[in-house]
Design a protein around this nucleic acid. Structure first.
Length: 713
DNA sequence: TTAGGGTTAG
């Protein structure tokens, strides 16, 4: 064998290793004797990795009679190899072998093991290593203790960390700082602060950890105060960490003045070369409402890393400057810098908000091309985007490709199905979620409750509602109450609804009252409508929708005096009804329509077609529903108003501008009205098209004369 | 051996 190795070149030996595991040890010895150093450097790790393929080889490697190295060294080598390959479980098992061979692990062995535990956040394995100290009589030094401390605090096992910390006979700044950062991460700010105050000779690290802790837990003023104290008390030279945490604090307050002060400091001290400091700076300007300044800083950055790009793109979206956001994203793609999960999540989220499925699809294609992590939140952002765009089938395809869907993706699916008129599927997914072992949170419950509402499954909904605290031990939120009131009042179960409202532990919010008011509109419940509206007037007197709904309820009951009164209050308070508008994208152009809009170049064709269509749908049985018109005008006039609602104009334009059979997708800024809903159902049948209307609340898929929402919206 | 910036669900 030795001679054979001698004759073989590097590749030959490598192939030999893979063919014959048993020879590994001998091969290794041979390499040591016969190969040049640089070749041995490559070959030895390869042999070692083969050596520890299983326990048998390991034992043989270690207990071999004529070892060419010491036992400790062999153990260390084996553990190093396992750690390199991230095979934690097997590495931990070596501790048993050590015991059996009565070998005392060295600090280096423990250190390597703990590092791997840290990487994999393996708390239990870390505990095993810790427990092994006692067995082997090992007394850890500061280095090992700190590592263990870090592991415990990163795994949020603070009791363990604190016990160890208190037991340590010697501590350095790192021990203190690690402990503080553990408390800070877990949100135990008071504990962190107490410890922080006790740190002898605080360094930059201590200060920046504490400042960031306050920022992260929504106490930006405390963070700023601490930064000021640091400047006053300590003679410390600010470093990139303290500066960026102080910038984050100014961004969170927000305090542009201090931010600018720090900016000046950065320019004077040369901290500007750090990518994170630059990013924090542009982040600060963005959050202090100065996107222009943020862009200015961004443009001046020498090394713009992906985080800087992501931040800047996000800044544009956040401030409603979507076009510039998308433009900068295209620039990023051209720059050759590879976007990451955060970038994709940000851009996909913007697509979801706009229901810009075309862009979202392009991003998806790009992600697929460069490869994305199906475990990441970029994947869940994709699910969210498709479901928000009403393309629940694509959402499901992405979802099914995820090895382990996270709660966000589950919730996106549940809400997506609920919003797109498939409440049974929503409920099925919720049940699957329960079985998957992922714990639902309050938002997942909002999803399933709204599904029950749309399916009209009152009792099922009540069952879920009660299970929230009875089975899942979660507290009911105001949202849950709003959902359950929506569920009950849509079905006319007002007595139960009122009973719940009067007994609920928190003040009903605007969503709850708005749901109740909506239910009252369906069932013509005057007294309760008044109660809901009055509550809403108090919470949000500027919201025109409340006045309009209340007036409509009175109008339906023929109580025109009351209608007039509501209108008068509305005028007195200066509340203006938000104009309804609908838009449709044909090829690359977006066409926007208002009520009775005549500004479109194709107005003549649109109105003529709509006229023809109105006749046809009336023949099919459509009766204009004039109840829901605010003004007390003549019937014929009402009909006129109705037939030129923005969504009807957009649908009509869609039909005449696209080839037969094309899907029509219309967006509306407000909820669609009852009459349009009925009319579009008929239209879908007459023109033989699938029509999707996304209103401010949900998706309506119209097909063959019916709508996916089952007339609940 | 300790740390800072970006992201998703109604």
């Amino acid at each position: 064998m030795n001679r054979r190795c001698d004759r073989l070149d590097k590749n030959g030996i490598l192939s030999l290793i893979f063919v014959c595991k048993c020879c590994c040890l001998r091969i290794r010895t041979s390499i040591q004797h016969h190969q040049s150093n640089d070749q041995a450097d490559i070959l030895i790790p390869a042999v070692c990795s083969k050596l520890v393929v299983d326990q048998k080889f390991l034992i043989r490697a270690i207990t071999e009679k004529k070892p060419y190295v010491s036992r400790e060294k062999k153990f260390k080598e084996a553990i190093d190899t396992l750690c390199q390959q991230k095979r934690l479980k097997e590495a931990i098992q070596i501790l048993d072998l050590l015991d059996r061979s009565r070998t005392c692990p060295t600090a280096a062995i423990y250190s390597a093991l703990l590092q791997l535990c840290l990487q994999q956040r393996a708390l239990e394995d870390g505990r095993k290593v810790h427990a092994h100290f006692k067995v082997s009589g090992f007394v850890p030094g500061i280095f090992i203790s700190n590592r263990l401390l870090d592991l415990y605090s990163k795994c949020e096992s603070l009791a363990d960390a604190r016990k160890l910390f208190d037991e340590m006979t010697e501590r350095d700044l790192c021990s203190w700082n690690t402990m503080i950062s553990g408390y800070a991460k877990a949100g135990q700010l008071e504990e962190a602060r107490l410890l922080f105050e006790g740190v002898p000779g605080k360094d930059n690290f201590s200060w920046s950890t504490m400042i960031s802790a306050y920022v992260r837990h929504d106490q930006p003023h405390e963070a700023l105060e601490l930064y000021r104290r640091m400047q006053k008390e300590e003679k410390l030279q600010c470093n990139k960490f303290t500066v960026s945490s102080a910038l984050a604090a100014s961004a969170a307050v927000p305090c542009l003045k201090l931010g600018k002060e720090i900016h000046g400091h950065i320019m004077r001290t040369g901290l500007a070369s750090d990518a994170v400091v630059w990013s924090a700076l542009s982040d600060m300007y963005g959050k202090c409402g100065s996107v222009e300044e943020a862009r200015h800083v961004f443009d001046k950055m020498l090394d713009r890393d992906i985080v800087a790009w992501t931040t800047m793109v996000g800044r544009y979206f956040e401030s409603g400057r979507r076009k510039e956001g998308f433009e900068l994203f295209s620039e990023l793609l051209r720059s050759g810098i590879r976007p990451n999960g955060f970038t994709f999540a940000g851009i996909l989220n913007a697509c979801s908000a706009d229901a810009a499925e075309d862009t979202g699809k392009q991003v998806h294609a790009y992600m697929t091309r460069i490869g994305f992590d199906p475990f990441s939140f970029a994947a869940s952002a994709l699910v969210h985007m498709y479901s928000k765009c009403g393309n629940i089938d694509s959402a499901r395809r992405v979802f099914e490709g995820m090895p382990q869907p996270d709660l966000v993706s589950w919730t996106s699916m549940i809400s997506g199905y609920a919003q797109n008129g498939q409440p049974e599927e929503a409920i099925r997914y919720f049940e699957l979620l329960l079985r998957s072992g992922t714990k639902p949170d309050h938002i997942a419950f909002v999803g399933v409750l709204s599904a029950c509402t749309h399916a009209g499954l009152v009792d099922k909904g009540l069952e879920y509602f009660h299970s929230i605290n009875e089975i899942h031990g979660l507290k009911h939120t105001a949202d849950h109450y709003a959902c359950i009131i929506d569920l009950l009042s849509r079905r006319g179960r007002f007595q139960e609804a009122e009973g719940i409202i009067d007994k609920m532990p928190m003040k009903p919010d605007r969503f709850l009252w708005a749901s109740l008011l909506g239910g009252c509109r369906i069932h013509g419940k005057l007294r309760l409508a008044k109660r809901a509206a009055e509550a809403l007037f108090e919470i949000e007197p500027e919201n025109a929708a409340t006045y309009v709904t209340l007036a409509n309820i009175y109008a339906t009951a023929g109580m025109w005096d009351e209608v007039a009164k509501v209108r008068k209050i509305m005028d007195n308070r200066g509340v203006v009804k938000k104009p309804g508008s609908s838009w449709i994208k044909i090829k690359r152009d977006v066409h926007v329509f208002l009520v009775g809009d005549k500004s479109h170049p194709k107005t003549k064709e649109i109105y003529e077609f709509l006229e023809k269509l109105s006749k046809r749908i009336k023949e099919e049985g459509y009766v204009p529903d004039t109840n829901f018109v605010l003004h007390d005008v003549e019937e014929e006039q009402k009909e006129q108003n109705l037939s030129h609602h923005s969504e009807k104009l957009a649908v009509a334009f869609g039909v005449i501008s696209t080839p037969p059979g094309t899907l029509i997708k219309v967006f509306k800024n407000l909820r669609t009205c009852v009459d349009c809903h009925t009319a579009i159902k008929f239209m879908s049948k007459i023109v033989g098209r699938e029509i999707i209307v996304r209103d401010s609340n949900r998706f309506h898929h119209f097909k063959d004369g019916s709508c996916s929402c089952g007339d609940f919206w």
